[in-house]
């Protein structure tokens, strides 16, 4: 569906996208995961032909983003990081405007607008001015706008950035519904790990303009080596510790220098922890399952930032100092 080849975008003093190669398949939900400034948005802007690549190209839906930009535009939808609807107009009027701009045939215009409004659950509020919408509703209207011309591909740039936890969860529900009902290829960028984990079929971790890891969420987590069980033994010198290594579900047993605990890397701790506990005497047990955050940490050596740089709180802090 999308084939990105050696895509590069340089600005005068930095390289935002640095030789990106990536294939995205039809009808999958692909997540571009990365911290702020990793090149996610720049990549999406290039794929949607808003930015010209410095070099390299991509084929989107069979069209070249450099030489056939008009055709690319007609076949993709994009939802920007910040809502872009005119808030003096109603939700319905915004959709109507874009149905004209995308040249949706007159006969199906009204039907299509009704469909997308229903899909994002805004039918009730369609005749209210957008300025009366909540943050979550505005985002949903954006998604409806992006879908108005039945694109084959839709880009969602940080679809839940800045939403409160409950609107974030309802947004996820709408995105899942979109996958089911529209049979569309979705490329979403996010720096929320759980969002990527929950929604995406495959995830590419992008750092400094390059894809550094690419796989399904579950296999990415396996890469970390399964669940980790930490135990403190009731008494030292337990010979069974060595025996544990013989189980096929135990990958590694080692004494940590940091906390002095025994760390066991195992598959499926839910099922296997009771078995292990039959063999050793413990006075304290904890186990953790790997998250995408661990994957990110391992592949980039850094924690992902949870809040965007120069975000609201930072500005606030700056005012405070004055």
């Amino acid at each position: 569906m999308i084939a990105i080849r050696d895509l590069v975008k340089k600005y005068s003093n930095l390289t935002a996208v640095d030789g990106l190669n990536l294939d995205i398949y039809e009808s999958e939900v692909f997540g571009l995961l990365g911290s702020n400034g990793a090149g996610k948005t720049t990549t999406i802007h290039m794929l949607a032909t808003l930015l010209k690549p410095t070099s390299g190209t991509a084929i989107v839906n069979g069209y070249d983003i450099v030489t056939q930009s008009a055709k690319v535009r007609s076949s993709v939808g994009i939802v920007f990081q910040a809502p872009s609807s005119d808030d003096m107009l109603t939700g319905y009027e915004n959709l109507k405007l874009h149905s004209w701009l995308y040249n949706v045939p007159r006969q199906i215009r009204a039907k299509r607008i009704a469909e997308v409004l229903d899909l994002v659950g805004l039918t009730q509020r369609k005749d209210d001015q957008v300025k009366k919408y909540s943050g979550g509703m505005r985002r949903r209207l954006e998604i409806a706008r992006g879908l108005i011309h039945k694109p084959k591909v839709i880009f969602l740039d940080e679809p839940t950035l800045g939403l409160d936890p409950s609107s974030r969860e309802s947004m996820w529900e709408y995105i899942k519904r979109l996958v089911k009902e529209e049979k569309i290829t979705i490329i979403l960028t996010t720096h929320y790990m759980e969002e990527a984990d929950l929604l995406c079929d495959r995830i590419g971790i992008i750092d400094k303009g390059k894809i550094i890891v690419l796989d399904t969420p579950s296999r990415l987590k396996e890469m970390i080596g399964g669940d980790v069980i930490k135990v403190r033994l009731s008494h030292e010198k337990q010979p069974n510790i060595e025996l544990l290594k013989k189980f096929s579900f135990v990958h590694k047993v080692e004494q940590s220098n940091e906390d002095g605990l025994i760390h066991l890397s195992v598959e499926d701790a839910n099922r296997n922890l009771p078995i292990i506990l039959k063999y050793i005497d413990t006075e304290w047990v904890e186990y953790t399952s790997p998250t995408l955050n661990d994957v990110f940490l391992k592949s980039t050596g850094r924690n992902i930032k949870e809040e965007p740089e120069g975000g609201f709180m930072e500005k606030f802090a700056r005012y405070d100092q004055k």
Partner: peptide, 13 residues
């Protein structure tokens, strides 16, 4: 400023 222009510019217009 309000990104409306961006949404028009990304349309095939």
């Amino acid at each position: 400023k309000f990104d409306f222009l961006k949404s028009v510019m990304v349309a095939p217009v």
